[in-house]
Computed example of a mutant assay.
Amino acid sequence: MRLHQLQAAPKALLLVAEHNGPTMFARTRVMRALNRHYVPELNTKGKEPHWGRRKLKRDQ
């Protein structure tokens, strides 16, 4: 990610500490800064549909 995300994390923490700011915003900024090199793996298969997996008792 970009350098400004690394700068936004400490600013958000200072806002929380000094002025009782929004803690969720600070947490989001810190997590983005820590995980800036992580690229999630895409699942091309996707979710399976919920139908057809289980048999009903009456159908056995």
Rank of each mutant, 00 (worst) to 15 (best):
V30L: 14
H50M: 10
H4A: 05
G46A: 06
Q5C: 04
L15R: 11
V30K: 02
Q7T: 10
T23F: 11
R54P: 03
M24R: 06
P49T: 09
L56I: 03
L13Y: 01
R29D: 08
K11A: 15
H19P: 00
V30C: 09
A26D: 03
R58T: 12
L6S: 04
K55I: 15
R54T: 14
P49K: 08
H19T: 01
H4G: 00
A9S: 13
R36L: 11
H19F: 05
R29K: 15
A17K: 07
K45R: 14
R29S: 13
A12M: 04
G21H: 01
H19Y: 04
K11C: 06
A9P: 02
H37Q: 05
P40N: 02
P22Y: 03
R27L: 15
K45N: 14
L56M: 13
L13C: 13
L14D: 14
V16T: 05
K55Q: 14
H19I: 02
R53I: 15
K55E: 14
H4Q: 06
L14A: 14
N35A: 12
G46L: 08
D59E: 15
F25V: 15
A33T: 05
W51I: 11
T23I: 14
G52P: 04
N35F: 09
M31E: 11
M1Q: 06
